[in-house]
Design a protein around this nucleic acid. Structure first.
Length: 565
RNA sequence: GCACUCGUAGCUCAGCUGGAUAGAGCACCCGCCUUCUAAGCGGGCGGUCUCAGGUUCGAAUCCUGACGGGUGUACCA
């Protein structure tokens, strides 16, 4: 249900009837309940343009406003605000439609596009650490969201599987042994050990360097070892993805090395476009207004990540056919992407109409506001963080008695992982955020637990209710109306979130929805004695739609729900 | 130095394309369980939106500058 659009249409009709030959600006949600459900603020802006009194214009609009359909009431306030009340009967009907619809009344986009979402991108040489968390879950949310709205989403996991450190790792893998899966159980340690050998033993170091050359020249034995290493390392990532309920699979992997063959061609094509200049021995693209050039080939002939990114960009635009390409990468690389996007457009690698965006996010900080590190200053492994989340979640479960051990385990997983993800997604992605266990695992405030609790409370009602649910939704009081309008806003909110690639729009909405439901639940009894049948049926259905909406919203965030908490 | 970004309640954060008295949560204080999950709900306290100008009928939001924090600044990714 595109609620705003519907209301805008009504306003536009009033414009036409009043002979105001302008496009009406969009209505917005009322800032307060007293101001109705929606408000139209366009009269003031028009007043100046038309040289008329804003209240007079507002009157003209209101006089011509159809109050027999969606809208029930309109009031002029202050200098020319038009406060709008939606017809409760209409609201009820729309909720009914949403409830009977698998997609909760959310339309699929009329003009879906292919979207590449590039996220996670772990380095195969090391274990995933907390630094990968945000990209992985923000990216997955964006992918889920666009998919739900009907776009054709192509997930791309641009894993780092190429570079000089792999020579060292593979040399060490061969040296240590037969079964890679054993020595690679802890990648971090393996990397450290290999590095130690590299620094200590000249022979080993030379061997490592040889391996780099061999891999790059396509030596089969080395490539096999390399492949084995990548497989195992990727397996680690998949464990993390599975724990995180992130949908990335091996099919989404398009590694750095995938673009290797195209790199010389990238250089060739830049030369053809007359964009390349040599500077200090390196091949560079100098962009207008940019202080530093984009270096695409080093003095020694090697390529850089800008080169790979260019290759990836044109592959995504031309081979995959993407019309929107979103890079979910931390904010520090803003400069890099700005430049690379510019080169991609100027060189014609990517057509003008393709939307390139850097979905930037801030850093994760510890409680004292410093970058998130272990006590000794090392990086925190993502698996460890997630495991701790589950352990901590288990401690928060109040009454474990009613559950089997497996159920507690399952609950702890849903709560713990949900808490970590929600806390991250609830923050405006561009700002840095402070990681705080107590806050994220709390039932209070804008947390996943609060949402899961709201959901479970509703499921509890349905466990207690027997018999079929029939009859229609009736909007009884103001609270029910606010809840219902909130439910109808779902699609508007999702669209905004998708447009801005902003998961926190979803969490903010869900929180507001859950809060409204809790209030409704406290004030308007459903199954208690004395509630007449029609009201009961109506409230059951409202509760049902609320639960389904919460579940669908959380599902987009990649967060699970349980029927009982 | 230059570029980017942020600065909102004691703390953590919202605030969409400018709109009415700037919103949540935590913390603190006060109420509400013999009936649907009180892990909840209601109420109170708490603000010079860093500062100074400008645009506008109207600015936390847009522009300029200052101050403060963060990040990035040619051959790592």
């Amino acid at each position: 249900m595109k609620l705003k659009q519907q209301i805008n249409k009504t306003i536009q009709q009033a414009f036409d009837k009043a002979n105001i030959n302008e496009n009406a600006m969009s209505v917005s949600e009322a800032t307060k309940p007293e101001f109705g459900d929606y408000q139209f603020n366009g009269a003031m802006a028009l007043a100046k343009k038309l040289g008329k009194n804003p209240r007079h214009i507002a009157e003209m609009i209101v006089e011509n406003l159809d109050l027999t359909g969606i809208l029930a009431k309109a009031e002029i306030a202050g200098p020319g605000f038009i406060n709008l009340w939606i017809n409760p009967l209409w609201i009820a009907k729309q909720c009914q439609i949403a409830l009977n619809d698998e997609r909760l009344g959310v339309n699929k986009k009329e003009n879906p596009v292919k979207v590449v979402v590039d996220y996670s991108g772990p380095n195969m040489a090391k274990q995933m650490h907390v630094g990968h968390l945000r990209s992985t879950i923000i990216g997955d949310t964006l992918a889920n969201l666009l998919e739900f709205l009907g776009d054709e989403v192509i997930r791309q996991n641009h894993i780092g599987d190429w570079g000089t450190q792999f020579g060292m790792l593979i040399a060490y893998l061969e040296e240590t042994g037969e079964d890679g899966s054993v020595c690679l159980r802890d990648l971090e340690q393996f990397y450290k050990d290999a590095k130690k050998r590299f620094d200590e033993d000249e022979n080993f170091a030379n061997k490592a360097r040889e391996y780099v050359v061999k891999i790059q020249s396509g030596d089969m034995h080395c490539l096999n070892l390399w492949q084995k290493f990548i497989d195992i390392s990727l397996g680690h990532c998949e464990d993390v993805y599975s724990k995180l309920c992130v949908k990335l699979t091996r099919d989404d992997v398009k590694a750095e090395s995938f673009y290797n063959e195209d790199l010389p061609q990238v250089i060739e094509d830049l030369i053809k476009q007359n964009l390349l200049k040599e500077s200090d021995g390196a091949q560079c693209v100098f962009l207008e207004g940019e202080e530093i050039p984009v270096i695409v080939q080093k003095g020694d002939g090697g390529y850089l990540y800008a080169t790979t990114d260019l290759a990836a960009l044109r592959y995504r635009a031309n081979v995959l056919g993407a019309k929107r390409i979103s890079y979910v990468v931390d904010a520090r690389q803003a400069g890099h992407f700005k430049q690379v996007f510019k080169v991609a457009k100027e060189s014609g690698f990517v057509p003008e109409d393709v939307r390139l965006e850097h979905v930037a996010f801030g850093m994760m900080m510890d409680k004292s506001g410093r970058p998130f590190k272990t006590r000794d200053g090392g990086t925190v492994k993502l698996v460890d963080l997630l495991d701790e989340a589950v352990v901590r979640a288990k401690d928060t479960i109040k009454e474990k008695e009613g559950y089997s051990e497996e159920e507690v385990e399952r609950l702890a997983k849903v709560i713990g992982i949900g808490a970590v993800k929600y806390a991250d997604l609830a923050i405006n992605r561009e700002s840095n955020y402070i990681f705080n266990w107590d806050k994220m695992l709390s039932f209070e405030g804008n947390t996943s637990l609060y949402m899961q609790y709201a959901y479970a409370r509703i499921q509890s009602i349905f466990r207690k209710h027997h018999g079929e649910i029939k009859g229609e939704i009736i909007i009884g009081d103001d609270l029910e109306k606010r809840l219902a309008v909130m439910l109808l806003r779902f699609e508007d909110m999702l669209e905004q979130a998708a447009e801005n690639a902003a998961p926190n729009h979803i969490t903010a909405y869900l929180y507001e929805l859950a809060t409204l439901f809790m209030r409704f639940y406290e004030r308007n009894p459903i199954l208690k004695e004395g509630v007449d049948e029609a009201t009961k049926m109506s409230r059951l259905q409202l509760a049902d739609l609320a639960a389904k909406t919460i579940k669908q919203g959380l599902d987009i965030l990649g967060i699970e729900v349980v029927d009982k908490l």
